[in-house]
Amino acid sequence: MIDQAIYRRFNHTVAACFVIYFLFPESILGFDRVYLVGMFWISILLIEYFRLNGAFTLDGMRDYENTRIAGFVWFATGTCMILVFYEIGIFPEIFAISTIIMASFVDPLIGEVNRKYGNKEGIIAGLMGSFVIYQMIIGVLFYSIVGSIVAVIVERPKFKWLDDDLLIQIFPIMVMTIFYLSGIGPELSLTLEGN
């Protein structure tokens, strides 16, 4: 058997590659690329439906996920929501890319540091990790601080029917977007090209 915890972490960090979506052409085979997001989400739901019904087992699942929606579904849902809201024109591209990468790396980082060193260290690692990623991609101190604080705050509470994999994506990007659109946050280049 492979180490389930490491396997789970690796699956989580590979999810950062979802940002390749932003390099796709606007239209694929005559269809708007946003349809890809819908197809992807439905296929994830189908996999989860059959897994929960015992049609097959997947490696890397936690014990409690045998009867509950798995983390990968929550993560995929969060990413798909970000991509759809980006296509609608609500979330800026730079926030979407940075948040997907941040969530992919920081959630497993917090989990690993929590497990090895303790909760306080997990919070510090989460703050530092998300700040560095936001700063590298967005490059505006205000959004890096706001995004990293919100990401770590929403990662802490544990709910039975709502997972931090979803919250750690939706809340930071929502708060940053609200700050930007309301004019409280500083101006920035909204696309990757400008950074």
Binding site: F10, A16, F105, M136, I137, L192
Partner: peptide, 18 residues
């Protein structure tokens, strides 16, 4: 380059451990 490096280096450690 920044995104490329983040994707690569962010996956190096868990990938290596695996």
């Amino acid at each position: 380059y920044i995104i490329a490096s983040l994707l690569l280096f962010g996956n190096v450690l868990p990938g290596y451990k695996l």
